[in-house]
């Protein structure tokens, strides 16, 4: 990826910690606001980061989210240590969820998280190794023209 880094920062995400959940995403949002990034880009990033962060909280032991902002894009990388996803195609299907009854009571488990991330990103890659963990790569371009001619 080209372009000089404007900023790079990593956030730790702890599995099962529903109290702290969302802190990484709200911090990313504050950073992007501070940088003067376009509000519509911030909104899309906020959705993607929160859904990705919550999946680590809900399903993994721990993970790390790295934010990189370049003049061209917001780039997010997530790596977790956890059970992994046996069938990614199934997991990407809207409505599919393995959330527990407790999670569903809290309003999680609509099976919309991964589809939401995909919808809000220009590039989205997911890979997973069962028993090891899951990796996400998300790119949101700052300039909509870049999306048309990558």
């Amino acid at each position: 990826m080209s372009g000089e880094n404007v900023l790079s920062q990593s956030f730790e995400i702890i599995g099962g910690n529903f109290g702290r959940a969302g802190k990484a995403s709200t911090t990313v949002k504050d950073i992007l606001k501070e940088l003067g990034i376009d509000p519509s880009i911030i909104r899309r990033t906020a959705i993607a980061t929160y859904e990705a962060e919550m999946n680590v909280v809900m399903y993994a032991e721990k993970g790390e989210m790295t934010l990189r902002v370049t003049p061209e894009m917001v780039h997010l990388h997530l790596q977790d240590q956890g059970p992994g996803i046996p069938d990614i195609k199934l997991a990407m299907k809207e409505g599919y969820s393995t959330a527990t009854p407790e999670m569903r009571e809290m309003g999680f488990g609509a099976g919309m998280g991964l589809p939401n991330i995909k919808k809000n990103s220009d590039l989205f890659e997911i890979s997973s190794e069962v028993g090891k963990g899951t990796r996400l790569e998300i790119v949101i371009y700052l300039n909509p023209k870049v999306k048309a001619n990558p």
Binding site: A21, G22, R43, A46
Partner: peptide, 16 residues
């Protein structure tokens, strides 16, 4: 909403 836990605050903030 019927939900009252902390994640509601995070979602409300993230969505302005």
């Amino acid at each position: 909403t019927f939900q009252t836990h902390q994640n509601v605050v995070a979602v409300a903030k993230l969505k302005d």
